[in-house]
Design a protein around this nucleic acid. Sequence first.
RNA 1: GUGGGUGUAGCUCAGCGGUCAGAGCACUGGGCUGUGGCCCCAGGUGUCGAGGGUUCAAAUCCCUCCACCCACCCCA
Length: 425
Amino acid sequence: MIQRVRGFRDILPPDINRWQYVENTARNILENYGFREVRLPILERTELFLRSIGETTDIVEKEMYSFIDKDKSPVTLRPEATAGVVRAFIQHGLYNQIWAKKLYTIGPMFRRERPQRGRYRQFWQINAEIIGYGGPLADAEIISALDMILKALKIKGYEIQLNSLGCKGCRPYFKEALMDYLSNKVEGLCPDCRRRQKLNPLRVFDCKVEGCRKIILDAPRIIDYLCPDCQRHFIEVQDYLRQMGIEFKMNPYLVRGLDYYTRTTFEVIAPGIGAQNAIAGGGRYDELIKELGGRPTPAIGFAIGIDRLLSLLPDIEENRRPLLFLALLDDEGVKIGLNWARKLRQKGIWVEMGYNRSSLKSQMNKANKLNARFVLIIGEEERKKGRAILRNMDTKVQVDVPISPDEGIPSFLSQIKNKEETWSS
RNA sequence: GUGGGUGUAGCUCAGCGGUCAGAGCACUGGGCUGUGGCCCCAGGUGUCGAGGGUUCAAAUCCCUCCACCCACCCCA
């Protein structure tokens, strides 16, 4: 048997209900916030991710699905969405398009990690970006949209963690201070962090090793190094969030795994879904568009992990049911039934039938398994009388209706209507 | 990349050196010759994850590999 590639998943009914529910909910909310959907390539040039995410991040160092295309160019399955959005934004010169200020996209991302609960090599994200606005109101709106989606989905117990990473003006001072501090503590650091200390000292904050954590506790904090502008920005973001009643928790150690973030960063964690408990994350990236060759343009975005979100949602019960199942007992019956089916479906009604000739018993059985509300029986006897048998599967009540679709369908539909009135009263 | 756990029917699992590989659910047919759910009966359920080894004898013991799950690293 040919097996699925490791870490990839098949999404099948009845699970698909939950996927559609989450996507539809997010879509509706984002559209109300004025976001427009974009659909972008899954494959991008590797360089895009090297330059955006950062060469010394875990994603780039060990998690990318990269390969050499037939024309020898290095390409990579996107490990996150923002880089592609920015690339498209620059490529199409969208700086002044009113619809390009707020964009969202839903689709799969790829990271080649060891799979575990809540972590897959292909995972799905809902991404939203506000582009071209550097002020704190954009931050507040993006977090507000994220929070509204989580609330609409009735996610319980999630926590929004907030931090600021400063800007290109103030972050270097902090980086230096941190590097100085860490260089005196090298003995206590794990091998990974010794390397990080030189290359990308902020990443030490993410370390879970006991020794490193202790060192981190006394380390300089980013928020103490913010320049006045960054400070003001961050305070205003918090004010807006409080204004809207959005709860959040400050986390001065939140640095995020991508190098392009500036100022506001956030992450949403949720309990009860295993070790991989981050269901969403994001932040501001005011330098990225310029760094990728575009005009200087501030932006902020978030990503929601659909796979992880779904593990927090209860099963959605299957309440779809066909209105009518056609039990067709002979060749002539099939011909009549085909017309019933076509005409009813044109009216938007779900009609089922058996595709192999079998006994009435087995057709009834199938109707029952499909949970059809009505069965219309058309056989030799019915044709002789010119009247088909209509059985209500819930009440077991059977009545006759004209067998010809032109007369029978109106009769059928009026009966349904009456039934619904009596049921609802 | 590292560690631990698990691989037997479509699903959930039992068997853990000694005839034949089993149960429940699901599936198909019949009891009911043209009427579903309940009940009864019958039936396919399978390279016992793959390959090799030990043994008179391997689903069972050993080795290797593979897959899945969980955890570490890190993140969605």
